[in-house]
Each structure stands twice: as structure tokens, then as C-alpha cells.
Amino acid sequence: MKRPSLGAVLWALIPFAGTCFSVALWDRIDPRIFGLPFSFFWLISWLFLTPLCMWRAYRIETKQDRLQRKDGRG
């Protein structure tokens, strides 16, 4: 099977870094934002930021697919 492109993987690494490995940096109560403890605010933000990153990854993958199809025909 075709492997995913590097660009798409790099975009996907951003949410991983933001919500998984960096836990020690954001697992705190202050500063409170909109009344939420910081950790809650941070993770909720990533529910919206992850689709943004993945949308970029999607653009990269589909562009690659189109290019490949063109190559195949030519």
C-alpha cells in the first residue's frame, strides 16, 4: 500500500505533541480561562485545532493522489 506522505504525518504530529507528550506543561489549574481550569481549556481547544491540522494533512494527501493519477495516465 502507498505510504502516507511526510507532510501529512508532520501535520498530524502537532496535535500529538499538543495533547499527549506535553501533559506535564498543561496539567495545571491556573490560569483559569472562561472559568475552566487550564488543562480542561487546553484539551477542549484541541478538539477544534485537531481537525484544522488534519484538514491540512488531507489537502496534502489528496494533492499527492491527484499528481500520482496524472503521472499514471501520462
Binding site: A8, A12, P15, T19, D27, F40, I44, M54
Partner: peptide, 24 residues
């Protein structure tokens, strides 16, 4: 308490992983 945050943490990442595996 706090450990329950893992539930909000993993769900977006699970879909992110699926982006690379499921199409293939």
C-alpha cells in the same frame, strides 16, 4: 478526577491515527 482527562485527550488522536490507516 484529573486522570479522566485522558478521555478528551485520546479521542481526537484516535481519529488522527485512522486518517493514515483506514484508507489503506
Amino acid at each position: 478526577g484529573g486522570p479522566a482527562l485522558y478521555i478528551i485527550g485520546y479521542q481526537p488522536l484516535a481519529f488522527l491515527v485512522s486518517f493514515f490507516i483506514l484508507p489503506a
